[in-house]
Nucleic acid binder design. Structure first.
Lengths: 323, 323
DNA sequence: ATCGATTCTGAAATCGATTTCAGCCAGGAC
DNA sequence: GTCCTGGCTGAAATCGATTTCAGAATCGAT
């Protein structure tokens, strides 16, 4: 312990510093099987919702000194498969939002025992894995009840793809609630779209061009709401006078829009942090039973919904006929 | 070639399919040194600007079948260093937006010959590397000229940190242009902030509380613009009647806001794709000289800027005194 | 049939760390 | 003084692929 004999450890530390030695994480990971790193795959990096979700995930792992590697599947199952294959080798576990409900690659890696947590969307087949979702049905129900209670009886929906879990849940719950309240939607007022801005835009176009345009529309996600808003602005349709709008998922600046947007909101950051906690727990105890979380939603009533105005409605009709 | 003797290759392919064999990307990368994968580090995943940028990057590498791994440095140089160390081992090259201008880790890896492309921000020290930036000075100049030409003579700026390249460039160019046009900004009207929503919010607060509040404000990035907008909305300040606002970087839905926002815009997607092209070229030819790109900006005049209204100005004063 | 050239095959080296293991040495107990 | 235990050290095995290489097999041409 005296100064005469310098310990090996100190000399190594000094050498590391001197030579600016950076261990190769690949070799380290290959041998030890541990990476101090988790992977996250989102379907659309430009959707602010997923950015907030990732933020929530990072907040958890930052404390553990675990790095988060993010990848974008661009809603493409093929590309996602390549990313999963990559990340499985490089990380200790995965958090992901699968682009499709039947994902053979995911089934396979889940079966192989790779720690996986699903967020927002779940798989319809395959083994039972951890997941965190929100109460999509409740959110759609709140939106429908709100519109009906305002007195609307021509209510439309721009739904997401029925092949996705949230798309189907919101779609069904919205239409069912409408029916239960005695205001079933006309078939022409049911648009099946794709959760994208352009999809919301074109769906709203076709709704406005209907013989009987709706007085209120439910947009099943934030991107489609933005597309719908854009078209309404272009056409000069007044919100909420001529058209009421409820979105699912809040939008950045949603309250600064004219009018501020009525939306079904959910704690996106918490969605991410919950998923991260689930993965962390599974990493610590791989054998535990799968956990399922359903987070609550709430309706935030702002200015984009109102009682339908008969005069305004007529105006929509006349403008259609005069164009 | 006849059916009698089955070639080894086919048998291997069959076995791969049968056993669902997935090669370990780690081992592959370790041995071959090639990863078919590039890393991207952004300072703030929740900033839509960076999401669009990543989208541009992905559009380029998708064609090459090169995966893109994204990481979030959260503006933290320490965390960024860990991410860089990780990604250097795992990828063929890096595209990054450094959180600080003097980044010893970056200098080190650039020196070590790791292919690196900088975007939006550059390093003030270290070796010469590829980078893509926008014409920050020109953008700030356009904003200043626009406000002065409208007749404003109490013009303020909410600038980013001067320790960052775009923060300093925009700040200096804006103030210089103001001086050149004979309308130098009062010292109280120069706010140094942090490129974050909250920073814009508090800066706008202090500007409104000045004895002589400005009639026009330049916000040096999108996040601070959002914060400033939020405060103006809360205080009930009318835009552009009581306050003109020019932002740097467009905002999603910027044209749907009330009023639609006047901004200095840049081709964010192109910023990403250009960086990706630069990295791809360097990967193909590691020895080439460093390339520097400066992309143009343009002023989009929408509704948030107008000629100052003497009546409205007085109203701001009186409201301050009456509160 | 022989030669040369090309392809194919299986074994061994390699990437850069972690992990294991045998061998060595020091200290404490009997 | 001997034996056992514990820690330390350096060498070798390991992770799972790619890459290399020598030797065998195939093919065409003379």
């Amino acid at each position: 312990m005296s100064g005469v004999k310098v310990g090996g450890a100190e000399r190594i530390d000094a050498a590391i510093k001197d030579l600016r030695y950076q261990p190769n994480q690949l070799a380290r990971g290959l041998r030890s099987g541990r990476h101090s790193c988790v992977g996250v795959i989102v379907p659309d990096i430009t959707n602010p919702l997923f950015a907030a979700l990732v933020d929530g995930i990072e907040s958890v792992f930052a404390a553990d000194n675990i790095r988060v590697l993010l990848a974008n599947s661009r809603e493409d199952p093929i590309h996602e498969a390549a990313l999963v294959a990559d990340l499985v080798s490089r990380t200790d576990g995965l958090i992901l939002i699968p682009p499709v409900e039947t994902d053979p690659v995911l089934v396979q890696i889940a079966l192989a025992g790779v720690p996986v947590v699903l967020v927002d969307r779940v798989l319809s087949t395959g083994p039972d894995v951890d997941f965190v979702v929100v109460d999509n049905r409740r959110g759609a129900q709140l939106a429908a009840e709100h519109l009906v209670s305002l007195g609307h009886n021509e209510i439309a929906t721009i739904s997401g793809p029925l092949s996705s879990f949230p798309g189907r849940e919101r779609h069904e719950a919205f239409l069912n609630t409408l029916s239960d309240l005695g205001q079933p939607a006309r078939p022409q007022h049911v648009c099946l779209s794709d959760f994208r801005v352009k999809g919301g835009y074109t769906s709203m176009t076709s709704l406005l061009d209907e013989q009987i345009p709706p007085t209120a529309v439910f947009c099943a996600n934030n991107m489609m709401t933005m597309g719908a808003l854009q078209l309404l602005r272009e056409r000069g349709v007044a919100i909420p006078d001529e058209m009421s709008l409820v979105g699912f998922d809040d939008i950045d600046l949603g309250e600064l829009l004219n009018p501020p947007l009525t939306v079904v909101d959910r704690a996106t950051f918490t969605l991410g942090s919950s998923a991260a906690e689930l993965l962390r727990a599974r990493l610590a105890e791989p054998g535990r039973g799968p956990q399922h979380l359903t987070l609550p939603v709430e309706l935030i009533v702002r200015g984009s919904t109102a009682t339908p105005d008969p005069k305004a409605l007529k105006h929509v009709h006349s403008s259609k006929e005069s164009s």
